[in-house]
């Protein structure tokens, strides 16, 4: 009962947020709607018992990625005139009719393909009994340092590289 309510709320938040990201005219609003969508996904994780994943989603997206996005919007938006020396607008609009028509067609094609692929699976899937909820934190920790230790280490190196790389790329240069 309560899980169903949580599921509905999260799914609605998620889908409305995603639709808002598509149709919003304002980049800042799109970022906030993306945050709503990501919160919805965290709720969906919580519904299927992926508690650690839900919290990680909250920590990384709400605390990190969305604020980074907002920062990038601010740092690239502070110009007075609207077009640069190449004659292209500095802050492009969120899309025009042309781009939306192209996107609509591509989405139609892709969605037919994906639905075709999924149909097979949907038919063969039989709904079993869901196992009871149990904490996933210890199990995920154990799996991370036993079976998946290589991926874990590589991702830590990847993160370090990304950190250093981002700092090097974005640093202001003299002259």
């Amino acid at each position: 009962m309560f899980e169903n309510i949580l599921f509905f709320l999260s799914a609605a938040l998620c889908i409305i947020g995603a639709a808002g990201v598509v149709f919003s005219k304002n980049l800042m609003h799109a970022c906030v709607l993306l945050l709503a969508s990501l919160f919805g996904i965290a709720g969906l994780y919580a519904v299927i018992g992926a508690d650690f994943l839900a919290a990680a989603q909250l920590v990384i997206y709400a605390g990190g990625v969305v604020i980074l996005m907002l920062f990038a919007v601010m740092l690239t938006g502070g110009s007075s005139d609207n077009s640069n020396k190449f004659g292209i607008e500095k802050i492009p609009a969120m899309g025009s009719t042309k781009t939306y028509v192209i996107a609509g067609f591509s989405v139609l094609v892709i969605s037919f393909t994906v639905l075709k692929l999924m149909a097979n699976f949907m038919k063969s899937y039989t709904k079993g009994e869901l196992p009871a909820f149990s904490s996933t934190v210890e199990k995920i920790g154990t799996l991370l340092v036993t079976d998946h230790v290589l991926a874990f280490e590589i991702s830590s190196i990847l993160l370090l590289g990304a950190l250093v790389g981002a700092a090097v790329i974005a640093r202001p240069r003299k002259g």
Binding site: V22, I91, P92, A93, M94, G95, T99, A103, G104
Partner: peptide
């Protein structure tokens, strides 16, 4: 996908 194709930003 729609966002990636439709936006120029």
């Amino acid at each position: 996908i729609a966002v990636m194709i439709a936006r120029k930003n």
